[in-house]
């Protein structure tokens, strides 16, 4: 089937099988490898990306269902050389270790902040409860979201 999907502002047309999962379209057709997958069953959230501004789990959506829609992935978070505040927050607060859940987690967190710029800790914890992290125990991810909430615009991050 022919589909046209806009990803991070760029329109892509491909002829694909209806059964192709969205996560495979992003990873294997467009070679955007920042979106990962971890569980097959929509439990872990490693594959989270945005479809029309809403985070969804791309292992449990067909690429054909995204035909005509706009997708944003982790590769579309930064503005060129400037990292998004949520990316900076993860770095400032050590919100990542192995980095595997991080792209999906950040896509969830960015959406959370867009809908609620000053979330409470409880709101953050509920908001990220569909994204499993095996490394951080979540404390520093919560802190990263709080950092991003407090530093919404440009801030210096040292590498």
């Amino acid at each position: 089937m022919q589909v046209t999907i806009t990803v991070n502002g760029v329109e892509h047309s491909r002829d694909i099988e209806p059964r192709m999962l969205l996560v495979h379209f992003i990873r294997d057709e467009l070679l955007l490898r920042g979106t990962h997958w971890g569980c097959d069953t929509s439990n872990c959230g490693a594959c989270t990306l945005w479809v029309d501004n809403e985070p969804v789990k791309s292992c449990t959506m067909l690429a054909v269902m995204a035909d005509g829609k706009a997708i944003r992935t982790v590769e579309g978070l930064a503005n060129g050389a400037e990292l998004d505040p949520i990316q900076k927050g993860f770095m400032e607060c050590h919100g990542l270790q192995c980095g595997f859940c991080t792209p999906g987690m950040m896509m969830t967190c960015r959406a959370l902040l867009d809908g609620n710029p000053h979330p409470t800790e409880a709101e953050i914890r509920e908001g990220i409860s569909g994204n499993i992290c095996r490394c951080t125990g979540y404390k520093n991810i919560v802190a990263a979201v709080q950092w991003a909430a407090e530093n919404p615009a440009t801030s210096e991050v040292t590498a």
Binding site: L32, R33, G34, T35, T73, V74, E75, L77, A78, L83, Q87, F90, M91, L96, G99, F100, T102, P103, M106, A159
Partner: peptide
Amino acid sequence: DVRFLRGEG
């Protein structure tokens, strides 16, 4: 961190 944050792992 930066490569992971940019999805470049």
